[in-house]
Design a protein around this nucleic acid. Sequence first.
DNA 1: AGTATTTCATACCTAAATACTAAGTTTTTT
DNA 2: AAAAAACTTAGTATTTAGGTATGAAATACT
Lengths: 149, 149
Amino acid sequence: MKYSTRTRYGLRFLVYLALVEEDRYVQLRELEQQERISLRYLEQIVRLLKPTGVLLSSRGKYGGYKLARNPEKISIAEMVSSLEGDLAPISCLSHQYSCDRKPDCLTLPMWEELQEVINKYLRGKTLKDVVAQYRENRARYGKIETGVQ
Amino acid sequence: MKYSTRTRYGLRFLVYLALVEEDRYVQLRELEQQERISLRYLEQIVRLLKPTGVLLSSRGKYGGYKLARNPEKISIAEMVSSLEGDLAPISCLSHQYSCDRKPDCLTLPMWEELQEVINKYLRGKTLKDVVAQYRENRARYGKIETGVQ
DNA sequence: AGTATTTCATACCTAAATACTAAGTTTTTT
DNA sequence: AAAAAACTTAGTATTTAGGTATGAAATACT
């Protein structure tokens, strides 16, 4: 079980936006250069995030993306769920899935509990928290904190 | 992120063995019928579990598998890890993986924390616990608990 | 008005992994 | 000797991951 690059890249995109100090639109080209993520691929990933309403976008020259709300109002659970499709750790727990053996399943209760553990962690996590963790980590490594200009 | 059928089937196999009351070898054919898991596929899944030393096997007629130790001594973390390869939630955290961007990664600290959350849950879980959860769940559904003859 | 630049959208592609099946070999019991 | 089981290797179909390619629509600047 691995989260896909979609999810990894998507979250890095959001953290990047959160790190931008000034009020400006960030272009995907900038992320391609800074974060080494293919522009074309990133376009598709961003599209997965749009329905959550977390992004403001502007087309054309000097266009790009910015966060639509404060990072502390942005739930990682919601972002991962949009990028990954859902948060179920096994397909049996995905919404559309049905299985007549469910009442007799030897392991379903355990999987449900694991799902709850993961969901609880992700629900309690905001984009602000992830940014803070990143900053702490940088400090540990003794890096000067510059943020994104 | 989804755990594979390998892992799901493998755990069901282990719980099934734990539910057997008598001291006998359980044949894969029995699991094929009771749990609807292809015998040929199950053979390969079982092979992933053998290196952990959790299984005793006997060949030939009346052969099969039984647990090598008490279910409370069998860690789910170890079983899932053997079935899945490792417990990393993203490939960046798999053992062999290396990435020169790690010190600057915007999200790695968060993923490490999630990994710890998942590992902690799985490490604290034994096969005995999973069996108990199954039994409780059956009771909730009002099913008569027969176990496996 | 025209051009450059960006997001937005659809379609397509390739490699790898998943989830098996097939066919046999080895070991043990009857 | 025969049957039945675990073991082993190889192959295969399908799905998913992880992208590219192409172009349309919107915006800003000249």
